[in-house]
């Protein structure tokens, strides 16, 4: 073996001029696929899983209602029973009418209004029925039960 030269050649520096472009590409990817978080959740929600799901098409025409047990920091104040959250604060089902009216005002296409309900899977139906009755009263009839997807077939 000839043996390796123990030359003092310097390692050529890596060209990093394309690094910003790379990062920008990732940035744009994230800007496109993600949506701005509008509210901070005060409730813990594990949505149920279903098979016959549809995507919410018009983001601008969607209002959100969150239902679930309060997170740890609110538990002392509000208890651990599922509660409803509108915008950034806890609310009673009776406040839905105002909420819907307010949401409608800021919408261009009011007929396309969809109410997306993100409800924790262990919530009792009495609360949900109350919410649905209020939605009916305020003529917000298109609703969407938010859910994760699962494979078809029997569960478990």
């Amino acid at each position: 073996m000839a043996g390796f030269k123990k030359g003092t050649r310097e390692m050529p520096e890596m060209n990093t001029s394309s690094l910003p472009d790379l990062i920008f590409t990732i940035l744009f990817f994230f800007m496109i696929v993600t949506t701005m978080r509008e509210v901070t959740l005060n409730v813990k929600i594990t949505v149920p899983a279903g098979t016959e799901l549809e995507k919410l098409e018009k983001k601008s025409a969607v209002s959100f209602i969150y239902v679930g047990p309060p997170t740890d920091q609110y538990r002392a104040k509000y208890g651990s029973k599922p509660r409803m959250q509108l915008n950034n604060s806890f609310a009673d089902p009776s406040m839905i009418k105002d909420f819907i009216a307010q949401e409608r005002q800021s919408m261009e296409d009011q007929a396309a209004q969809v109410v997306s309900m993100k409800i924790d899977r262990d919530t009792k139906m009495s609360l949900i029925n109350e919410i649905k009755a209020q939605l009916r009263q305020s003529w917000a009839l298109k609703i969407n039960y938010s859910a994760g997807s699962r494979g078809s077939g029997p569960k478990q």
């Binding site: 994230f30 696929v33 949506t35 978080r37 549809e54 983001k59 649905k132 609703i143 969407n144 859910a147």
Partner: peptide, 18 residues
């Protein structure tokens, strides 16, 4: 940090009018 990935999917239903 400020955005979320969750794609909004769900079961679409229509409530009967009051």
């Amino acid at each position: 940090v400020t955005t979320s990935m969750d794609t909004d999917k769900g079961l679409t239903r229509r409530l009967p009018p009051p």
